[in-house]
Amino acid sequence: MVIGEAAIRAGCRFYAGYPITPQNEIPEYMAEHLRQVEGGVFIQSESEVAAIHMVAGASAAGARSMTSSSSPGISLKQEGISSLAACQLPAVIVNMMRGGPGLGNISPSQGDYFQATRGGGHGDYRVIVLGPATAQEMADLTMDAFTLADQYRTPVMILADGMMGQMMEPVVFKEPQPRVYPEIYIMKGAGAGKSKFIRGLILDPLDMEEHNWTLDRKYQVIARKETRHELYGTDDAELILVAYGTGARIAKGAIKRLRNTGLKVGLFRPITLWPFPTNELRDLAKKVENFLVFELSTGQMLEDVRLALQGFARIGFHGRPGGVVPTPAELANVVTRQYDRKQGIIEHH
């Protein structure tokens, strides 16, 4: 609901999607409200694959476009996301993750981190991935997602989970930024001018290689300029939790409890999951050597944390996959166990 309203305020005028729990609140909201704004089009498509390609079409025609789904549906959309990346078309894709693999269940999970942050579909590409932890941040990041998508002409994914998808919290909408984008690529009829075309099929290997390097240069700029993170209680921390989204909320609850018992625990929360705030995390290892990654998965972001910290710090892990949402008390117990241990890698399952 929050995402829907934020998207419309940000100028989204095209939404296509196919229903799946736990994210039906978004298409429900868009169905009602998108038609009330000028030029707004809502389509309940015949499939997830159709929806993402409709988004590609609308984007190529110059509309701010969005689709949303949950894990199994996002897998289906990967062909189209790869295409969007290849064609350098802006679009916003929302994934309210649920338990998997397969059809899994409809409970909150963070099992799609690998898929989202490594591109998702085939080919040499990345997608900007934003991981909100509150309803307020869902509103803010949805607006930012459209800006980033236009700025870099690339698909942007909002990666949240079933809990974020159904929970309600008070929100204040910020003023959307005016749209800035190069109209040059937009397909809206050549008129008397030269015809344009957008393609993802580039048969000559040398041309394709050149295209890959073009994309890569863009991704490197994004990686350099667009990382975001939040620090919470890290100033005096002796152990730092690394968690995102719903996991970070639980971590904050655990930290409040732990600080009441005198344990100095802080939180590093990546807000951009790709690009991952590697350098910002590594900076923390200059003064802290004890880290614990917490995810609603068997350990996916854990690999990015290892890439940032391996050799610099000790990295523990606690994960609950499959749609289980542990309590702050459970996580606090795990942290307490690792807090005083000085050696060895510990993995809690």
């Binding site: 809990m163 929970m167 919290e169 909320r249 639980i250 971590a251 904050k252 609850g253 655990a254 409040k256 949402v325 309590t327 702050p328 008390a329």
Partner: peptide
């Protein structure tokens, strides 16, 4: 204060 977990165990 800020609410960590919306779930009540």
């Amino acid at each position: 204060d800020e609410i960590a977990s919306p779930i009540a165990s």
